[in-house]
Design a protein around this nucleic acid. Structure first.
Lengths: 155, 155
DNA sequence: ATAATATTAGTCAACATTAGTCAAGAACAC
DNA sequence: GTGTTCTTGACTAATGTTGACTAATATTAT
């Protein structure tokens, strides 16, 4: 809580706005200036914290009157939603991205907290650690997809 | 009390904080410096003295604003049972035997039916299939143990 | 219309800042 | 003496920060 990095602070700022409105629209340079960082750091924050796996869609426009708009995605019905997650997982997935997938399932109501925690236990680095990172990412993807397919039948 | 090595001293320091708050968050380099040891010794202390068997869960983040967070968790009263299953799983486990483990958990009331089904989805042969049977059995074992360790405490 | 210029955002790679792993040797317990 | 635990540091990995360069869009000049 003490030594937060600036990316976390910007993330919190944006999510705070998103907690009350469906979307937030910013001018990149303005936010960068407000938090005293270079403009490209805003891209970094968005790329690492507002992905589709996190449940956000980002649109932007360059040129005069340009903007970056972050929209909190409305969850589709479960089946389409699971399809989109299966696609997002693909044939390999990083640990970081897999956390987003599980969080999205939880927030969509597809799983409860206990189930989410079990899935996290199944894909964390204690569980999957062959020494070959790419192999790990492939195994993690297969496990997630197997679970996603299971959830499809349940729902 | 006399012959305390530096690892014991660091352990005491952290547990003293944990006696009053639920968790402690440190910067590794800072603590290492404070006790005049190399940073990796902090990892050693954590790995040997703040395990899940001891009732601690550790999380960390690298990079700017990085931290190590140690959280004291409430252990459940099924520890001996979990221990026996961890032993039974060992370094590797067949798919058949892994089903027995999950069934035991379910029958003991440690997990409900949905949770059991998720675990089964995570360890079935769609999920874990590297082409090398022994490798699969090892991965399956690690996943199960990670889940078993998760089931030791309230979360 | 077209071209030039201004105004935005995007990409990428270098660098910075943290923690993790591992294996060798030292210290300790028996 | 032997086996275990502790200590150390070189190397690795993950994450965050910065700025130069690029691309897209809008506005202005012709």
């Amino acid at each position: 809580m003490e030594n937060q990095n600036i990316s976390d602070i910007i993330e919190s700022y944006l999510k705070q706005i998103l907690a009350e409105s469906q979307q937030v629209e910013i001018r990149r340079a303005e936010i960068a200036n407000q938090f005293n960082v270079v403009p490209s750091q805003i891209n970094y924050v968005i790329k690492t914290r507002f992905t589709i796996q996190d449940g956000y869609v980002v649109q932007s426009k360059r040129g005069g009157g340009g903007y970056i708009r972050i929209e909190k995605v409305k969850l589709l019905d479960n089946l389409d939603f699971i399809d989109s997650l299966v696609t997002a997982v693909g044939d390999q997935i990083t640990r970081h991205d897999s956390l987003s997938v599980v969080r999205s399932l939880f927030e969509a109501g597809a799983i409860n907290r206990s189930e989410a925690n079990i899935i996290l236990a199944a894909i964390n680095k204690d569980a999957i650690n062959t020494g070959d990172r790419q192999a790990d990412e492939q195994i993690r993807a297969q496990i997630l997809i197997s679970i996603l397919n299971h959830l499809r039948y349940e729902s």
